[in-house]
Design a protein around this nucleic acid. Sequence first.
DNA 1: CGACCATTTGATATGGATCAAGCGATGTGG
DNA 2: CCACATCGCTTGATCCATATCAAATGGTCG
Lengths: 228, 228
Amino acid sequence: MLTQTMITESPRLADRPAPGRPPGEGRLLGGPIDLMGACMSFARNEEIYGEGEPAEYLYKVVSGTVRTSKILADGRRQIGAFYQAGDMFGLEMGDEHTFSAEAITDAEVRVIKRNAIAALAQRDNDVARELWTLTGHELQRVQKHVLLLIKTAQERVVGFLLEMAQRAHGSNEVDLPMSRQDIADYLGLTIETVSRTLTHLATTAAIELPTSRHVVLRNRAALTRLNG
Amino acid sequence: MLTQTMITESPRLADRPAPGRPPGEGRLLGGPIDLMGACMSFARNEEIYGEGEPAEYLYKVVSGTVRTSKILADGRRQIGAFYQAGDMFGLEMGDEHTFSAEAITDAEVRVIKRNAIAALAQRDNDVARELWTLTGHELQRVQKHVLLLIKTAQERVVGFLLEMAQRAHGSNEVDLPMSRQDIADYLGLTIETVSRTLTHLATTAAIELPTSRHVVLRNRAALTRLNG
DNA sequence: CGACCATTTGATATGGATCAAGCGATGTGG
DNA sequence: CCACATCGCTTGATCCATATCAAATGGTCG
């Protein structure tokens, strides 16, 4: 129960050239919060914020994929979630980030000052409601994550694939922007187990693996069954 | 990865004599929501609401302990949380309960109509904020739960004990109102593993087990270390 | 082409599940 | 009030899923 990722890199940031004005604006319908903030770019593997840093901003993915993660005392890493275009992340109840966030691919992220939102929510019920809804969705997501973590390795991997497919508007063609290590740390498994399980699913024709980062779901019925 | 609790009993309820007026009122300081609702009593093992039922109420534990749980397709049970005096539960984003709730011990629960709160929150920012805060705390709780579930059996059990101790205002004397099966289903372990781990902790003098439902934390330092 | 990194594959070890008793409390009926 | 059934918990023996250790393969970038 050790090893997993022992951290590789993570370019320091936070102090960076001031963010410019919103380029890719208005993506994904949403409330007033969608109209706020500036857009920033992050390179693959760049840290967006670190665990324990003051949570000054709220973030929305414009393009690319972001992961949140936490390094445990003994070096194990747990991934909290993967965020893709349209997803918001970084909202905290306290004033510190309890996870860190890194760009998995090159990514554009809209960055919104927390106290700006707080001020707005004070006066505007819709904004307040939007924040609550966001928190509620996160809660549901994490609850599903708990249900994944009590299952067998195969069920976890299948659950993950179905989750990714669902996000890709239900398509059977799923792109995996994250590494096997990321998947493993999300599912509480080792990289080897993830790899073997995928290979096995391919062998049994439930999925196809044209490349290691691209999955085709071939037999939904079988996958749904394997999902437990 | 099967067995675990196959459900035992669960007296139907919902349709019950109309709840009376609040007897034990005003426990635990809180916002406006604390002043609302009627008090109901539930017997040990009685169901408070079922998975999939319309979420018409919000609940607050006055006395006793409540668990929320979910039965998976194959019969496995996952416990979402244990709630004790002062804790609120049953708040849902959708309009159905995603878990069921049962009284672990005889319990008194304050029951507040959801649409009453919703109406209030519409006008009163403090109420709205209180709902958001509640959701946020649940989120933090579930996130901690995820971190528990990726650990070893011993770490999970120790983490659970420390969590229970913390709730008992940090005392070293911890009462466990729930069965070994409940603990196992909360931690994603079997009853045997929970039992063995507790025995082992007692053997190594980290804890004492005067009775199976009462634990004394003897060596916090050791426990904290074992917590990972 | 060669170095590096991600992924796969293979061999072995092990933590926790499973199967199976045993034991101590609690409660019930005789 | 005691005998017995029941229930929750513990303990023991064995098995198996997944981790661990190790190496080969393949893809990418200089």
